[in-house]
Amino acid sequence: MVELYSRRSFVAGALTAGMLSTATGYLLTRSEPVTLVLATGADPTGARQLLVSMWNRLHPDITIEVVEVNSSTMDQYAKFTETRADIYNLDVIHIPRFAQAGRIAPVVPRNDISLLEPVRRVCQVENSPDEFWAIPFNTDVGMLYRRITDKRATDLAPSMSEVLAQGSFTAQLNTDGIATDEAFVINVLEQALAQDDAILDAAGTVSFSLGQWRTALAPLADALRRRRVLAESSEETTLRTYNVRDLRYMRNWPVWFPSVDRAERGSKAGTMEIRLSGLPTGVLGGQSLAVAQDSPHREEAEQVIQFLTDEPAQKLLASFGFAPPGLDAYIDAGVQAVAPHVSTIRTAVEAARPRPIHPGYPDFARAFKDHTFAYLYRGEELTQRFVEDLREALQ
């Protein structure tokens, strides 16, 4: 345990040193100082602030002020539009809405960040392959955590049917309000994709076949009814249930892996290790940096975004547990030394499906949540109204 995390700290430190060297390539000269406002959600890892501090240390005339906006995923659009900013750190589902409203300006990357194809697809300007509405800061995908107590035993990644049958699984399959609704939507979509990967295709096109949805969600409804799933509403409560109950399986994002693995190795003698595997088909997540259309400092904002999303930055974020959006970070020897599981994350990202890439996504998510929650927890059948509401939201 000591050796592993000492090595993690050493490599992270080396990556940080490399970032400082890279940052000198983004030096700009100005006659008057400028402060750029970066509007973003919280980051409990501290990785984003480390990158910002690096930039500010080397660019005293062009500094970044981070404004953390207290919002859930679903009310982020409203909260962010109330915040004057030069740069927005947008959840992937909000990019089309910001673009349609004319609130962000297209950016042409000045670096080669070799984006994985699903990540590239959700950020590109349609019919303009060189332009992006936002440049990916990190990506994300749902992963299956497995608690291993005997390394000698056969440990093949299970199917979701096997996971549900064992009754030792927790995930964000409940909701207690707007702050957790989107996690519920994502987790239910992943359960449906595990049964039928044609429910949502690689372009984010959703099926409007009622029969298809009924069949895809029936196993989850049965598992919940038989209490084979410990349904939680947030990532944090899911983690707590996984640890307190010593469950074998958990669905969560990869950013939690370093802390979960470290805690297991340090405090639970019966656990050999925590392993990650991809879900049958995960839902794509992540955040991307966009330049505000009305920023008076667009050139400087673009320079900051290039630095924060460049290959060295991706490698540093990976050392903190984030899923990199670009190929180069996954194949880097330093990253693999810090996070040997990154190849598993890459495979999951490349197979992930995006939620509908549409300005009407918030309405889609509301309708999806209302209908599926009633079906899963109140026993109300899915009717044609369900697919009609989804279709209307995406028109």
Rank of each mutant, 00 (worst) to 15 (best):
D310P: 01
L316E: 04
P324G: 05
I331Y: 10
G321D: 09
A290N: 11
T281I: 15
P280Q: 13
Y330V: 07
F322H: 14
V291W: 06
A301D: 01
L308V: 05
V338F: 09
D328V: 00
T281P: 04
G326W: 12
P280E: 13
D294G: 01
Q314H: 01
A333Y: 02
I305Q: 04
P280A: 13
I305Y: 07
H341C: 10
L316D: 09
L279E: 13
A292Y: 09
L308G: 02
A333T: 13
P296E: 05
Q303T: 14
P296C: 06
A318M: 05
Q303F: 00
E299V: 13
T281G: 03
E311N: 15
S295T: 13
I305P: 07
R346G: 02
T347D: 14
A301R: 01
A329E: 08
T281L: 06
P340W: 01
A339Q: 15
A292Q: 02
Q303S: 12
L317G: 07
K315G: 10
A290H: 11
G278T: 11
G334H: 08
T344H: 05
P296N: 06
A292S: 15
D310S: 15
L289R: 01
P312Q: 00
I345R: 04
T281C: 13
F322A: 12
I305K: 07
E300F: 04
F322K: 10
V342H: 03
D310Q: 08
F307I: 03
G285H: 03
G334Y: 00
A333N: 09
V342C: 01
Q303A: 11
V291K: 05
